[in-house]
Design a protein around this nucleic acid. Sequence first.
DNA 1: CATGCCCCCTGCACGC
DNA 2: TGCGTGCAGGGGGCAT
Length: 295
Amino acid sequence: MPELPEVEIVRRGLEPMMLGQQFVGVEQRRPDLRFPFPAGFATRLEGQTITAVRRRAKYLIVDLSGGEALVMHLGMSGRFTIQPGVSQSPQEFGGYVYDTGAYPQHDHVVFGLSNQSRITYNDPRRFGFMLLVPQAELPTHPLFASMGIEPLGPDLTALYLAKRAQGKRVALKSFLLDQRIIAGLGNIYVCEALHHAGLSPRRLASTLGLRNGGPADRTARLIAVIPDVLHQALNAGGSSLRDYRHTDGTSGDFQRAFAVYGREGEPCKRSSCNGTVARIVQAQRSTFYCASCQR
DNA sequence: CATGCCCCCTGCACGC
DNA sequence: TGCGTGCAGGGGGCAT
């Protein structure tokens, strides 16, 4: 998916277009994405004013004046496109509802706003989803109740990570991908952060745990590089692997900066290291790392 | 509870 | 050119 930096960039693209606007026409063109759409999805949005466009981990949360929140996840291939100055009239969307063969390929939802803009959700793989949840229930909703900390917030400390890692018998890579620990990291940035920290993805998570009552040094190293990697990606406008696009249709260029991700067989970029980037599979997903400088 | 594995779906790059 | 294979940013759900 878009990982945290990409979702944040999408949020920043959507917010100025959506904030304070009303949903005028909403067209839902198929009954489901990863999950069925909520009953009456379009109707429940229409007439609502957007009071906030937020992000939690890899989720986008659009607060509505009526008290519900539109919760959206982009899955692996979800994408928004904004067309300003078109029509807000639902019938002009084309009347494709539930006619999956008749609309532009994979354009599953179209939001018409009171400022004449149209926001289209496209998702070829349909791993994304949209829900409507009362704002007051978000903290206790199953999606969010056990969600871990934001990696760019003040909660990411060596002590926090050491406590959560205590006794964990999983690979460090899998531990960092676990959204119940840190929410928002994905496969790319976990690989990148581990490289920057000089830590092997194969090491047991428990080796980050408490030593003599405090976090191990390597834990401090790791929590220091995680925000760096994410900020670099944000500053570069997100990565552009495969189908990621900004809401304006342009792509990011962080991929050029990857130290290990997708670089199997290429030389390690760490100065002073002459290793080669390897690809292994952990928990059915590719891990890229340098076995010579990541211990 | 913790951990490991499979799967959802489509598109694309690659080798033959 | 066409076809088969493997792989892709996530994460829910089930078996053990």
